[in-house]
Nucleic acid binder design. Structure first.
Lengths: 242, 242
DNA sequence: CCAAAAGTGTTGGGAATACACCCATGC
DNA sequence: GCATGGGTGTATTCCCAACACTTTTGG
């Protein structure tokens, strides 16, 4: 059971790694991990083990990635590992132990086992979900400017993002909303930025259908148009797009 | 280790279930499963166990779903289960044992353990991937008419699909291509339908970015516009969309 | 007034749905 | 010829990217 803890630090997507002090792979960096208790679920176990690395309350989102089963992935013995993706907000500064450090994904140190490829999977999952879910809530502080959010998106995706379009897309989808506050203007002038917040802070799929959307639910016959209690008669999957 | 074997049968999405003959859950239906050998990966183990249920060569696609870890999911003892999604083509008629049968997902018999919810996960995964990957290749025969493919999509998605749009979308994306053959006309007349095939029979993501697409890679300077061997200089994730 | 940063208006393109129309076959 | 089913043409809508322009601050 492994945790890929990702967060944006200094405009870079970083992963939390722990330096091994024992064989195999002494000195190399590995993902936080630990054994599973008989009575707990994998998810709670990940949370429990992370408590020793970062404050658990800092974990804004946790989801299962995949289970690795290559018999040779641990040279000592066959070990199954279920990897989790854990996200921490950009402003969070959890106290971390001495043998643990943040590393930018683009310049990883030598890693242990198959952890590098697991980190790749995590990044891919996160990038994909940025474009069709509200998962940004787990990377951003409670309130933020659009420019700040743009930097977080750019760091995660790995390419520049337009603040203009970011604001419009997330607003139209109902993912973010403005607060009444504004940020202190700027270093040397400039219009003060409004602070935004994520409307929901749990995962929501905001853009479910790329193609083959379900047909419009037929607006009832013209003579008897009122379907009484609207909606409710859809027996196909419908996203929260309304 | 569990397998959710899905296939379209008589215009319905079906799952292969096995009727339990021992406690717990005697008589109820469960997903095919089996223990993992010390030297094999989960994926190959699933393939091996399915060999006793369906001909392995009939499995057109296999991918990992998730690992269930609820300590109470098996009343006897704590059992971790990694579920796989396996797809069989619509025309395939694999010989299956007497205690095994296809069941439409919309009318499942009483199931064992948490298998009903695992089947739900599998259906959700499959539905989602239908809209942004070429995963239909694993549900369709080697060649097929558009009308046949439409029925497969409709059965899987659970709502009607337009053959017109299906053809255009999958053609534009390069997912399907016409063959030189046509189907025998029709029962009582009608234009003979052209037979199509899937261009690739392994999973390809055909529609990667719903929003926040990477910017155009700057079409080089105007004086020297030819980028020589096109593409190849992208260091951000790009799908096979070209 | 000028620079700097935020936010809005507008345009253009691409993709998906829906619908009308044409094509090819059996009876 | 006519019914039946297959395929294409076209219009509409929606969404996103790009860019110009306005707004609001500090010097």
């Amino acid at each position: 059971m492994l945790a890929v803890v990702l967060g944006v630090r200094e405009d870079q997507l970083n992963v939390l790694l722990w330096q091994r002090s024992a064989e195999p792979f002494v000195g190399r960096w590995s993902l936080p991990c630990g054994p599973l208790r008989d009575t707990e679920r994998l998810g709670t176990s990940v949370g429990r083990h992370l408590a020793s690395k970062v404050d658990v309350t800092e974990i804004a989102h946790l989801e299962q990635l995949e289970t690795r089963s290559d018999p040779a992935r641990d040279p000592r013995e066959r070990v199954l590992a279920t990897a989790y993706l854990a996200l921490v907000a950009a402003e969070a500064q959890p106290r971390i132990p001495d043998d643990t450090a943040w590393h930018p994904l683009d310049r990883l140190p030598p890693t242990a086992f198959d952890h590098a490829s697991i980190i790749d999977s995590a990044r891919e999952r996160l990038r994909a979900k940025l474009s069709y879910t509200n998962i940004g809530f787990a990377l951003a502080p409670a309130t933020f400017t659009i420019a700040h959010l743009r930097d977080i998106y750019a760091a995660t995706l790995g390419y520049p993002v337009s603040a203009t379009n970011l604001q419009r897309i997330l607003s139209r989808r109902g993912v973010i909303a403005p607060t009444e506050h504004a940020s202190s203007p700027a270093p040397n002038g400039g219009r003060p930025a409004r602070l935004y917040r994520f409307v929901s802070r749990s995962l929501v799929i905001t853009n479910p259908f790329a193609a083959f959307r379900p047909p419009d639910p037929a607006p009832a016959s013209a003579s008897a148009p009122a379907p009484a209690s609207a909606s409710a008669q859809a027996d196909y999957p419908v996203g929260p797009i309304g």
